[in-house]
Computed example of a mutant assay.
Amino acid sequence: MGDREHTSRRERRERPRRRVSVLGVIGELLITVGVVALLFVAWQMWIGDVIIGGQKHAEADALSQSWMMPAATPSESASPAPVPTDAPAEAVVPVLAQPAHGEQFGVMFVPRFGTDWKFTIAAGTTRKDILDLGEIGHYADTAMPGQVGNTVYAAHRWTSGQPFDPIDKLVVGDAIVVQTAEGWYTYRFRTLEYVQDTQVDVLLPVPQQAGVEANGRYLTLTSCAPKLNMLERIIAYAVFDEFTPTADGPPAALTEGVTV
């Protein structure tokens, strides 16, 4: 009995211990880093976008509602209204002055994207202070809403609330509505196009028509295509349809073809 116990203890002493290799530690660390990276991507692409998108929708809705608050009633001493004439007055489309960089001046609605889809528009297209904050950026020196020429906008398709994620779902005739303090500018979608990131002629007064003077009102949306590819752009073109003053209330275009 004693000999067997002695032999058993000796075998345990002689059994080689498992060694933790440097490569094993590095492998486990890489696996951990990979899992963390996947969780971060999941957060960015789904959970984070849902949260940011909800916040931006609420912010856009608040700005939109603030412009629809009734104005103060003019006093009796105010100048009398002009006397109407038999000749119909030509419809005037008001145009805002170019805002300062980063200033919020509009809200965009696209009924095709759903009743909750609405995002604020800010002047400029820089990433850190505009696009990465979930806003739609307006290209500097392009036309303002309702102005003759080309009013051009950019936004992300993934992360930061992914405002332009559904851009490829647009159907010919869909309304793209830009609201400002003056009212609603309704444009109608015409076509999609994919271009290289160097093809900046989509920003011209008449898109892709160098040297041509604009005689119409156009709207252009730009974003990445596919979503994680920075070398190409998806472009959506639209043409002006009508202007609805704030005093007249929201246009019918806001509820046409709404996707719930």
Rank of each mutant, 00 (worst) to 15 (best):
V41A: 11
V41K: 13
V41G: 02
V41N: 10
Q44Y: 06
M45Q: 14
W46C: 08
I47R: 13
V50E: 15
I51E: 03
G53R: 14
A58L: 11
E59L: 04
E59A: 14
E59T: 05
A60L: 02
D61V: 09
Q65W: 05
Q65P: 02
S66P: 00
S66T: 01
W67G: 02
M69L: 15
P70D: 01
A71K: 13
A72Q: 14
T73W: 14
P74V: 09
S75P: 00
S75H: 11
S77E: 13
S77L: 13
S77N: 14
S77P: 00
P84F: 00
T85P: 08
T85D: 02
D86V: 13
A87K: 07
P88S: 08
P88I: 05
P88F: 07
A89K: 15
E90R: 04
A91F: 13
A91S: 12
A91D: 09
V92T: 13
P99V: 14
P99I: 14
A100Y: 00
G102I: 08
E103N: 04
E103K: 11
F105P: 09
F105D: 03
F105S: 04
G106T: 07
G106V: 08
M108V: 10
P111S: 06
G114H: 04
T115E: 12
T115L: 11
D116F: 06
W117A: 03
W117L: 05
T120F: 08
I121F: 02
A122G: 01
A122P: 01
A123F: 02
A123L: 10
T125L: 07
T126A: 11
T126V: 00
T126M: 01
R127P: 14
R127K: 15
K128R: 12
K128V: 15
I130E: 05
L131K: 06
L131Q: 09
L131E: 11
D132V: 03
D132K: 12
L133C: 10
L133P: 00
L133I: 02
G134V: 01
G134P: 00
G134L: 03
E135F: 15
I136V: 15
I136C: 06
G137K: 06
Y139E: 02
Y139H: 10
Y139N: 04
Y139F: 15
A140C: 01
A143K: 07
M144W: 03
P145K: 05
G146C: 08
G146N: 03
Q147W: 12
Q147G: 08
G149V: 05
N150Y: 09
H156F: 03
H156Y: 07
W158K: 06
W158M: 12
S160R: 08
G161F: 01
G161I: 06
P163N: 11
F164K: 05
F164I: 04
P166N: 09
P166E: 09
D168R: 03
D168A: 15
D168L: 12
L170M: 12
G173A: 01
G173T: 04
D174T: 11
D174Q: 10
V178T: 10
Q179V: 00
T180A: 02
T180N: 02
A181K: 13
A181P: 04
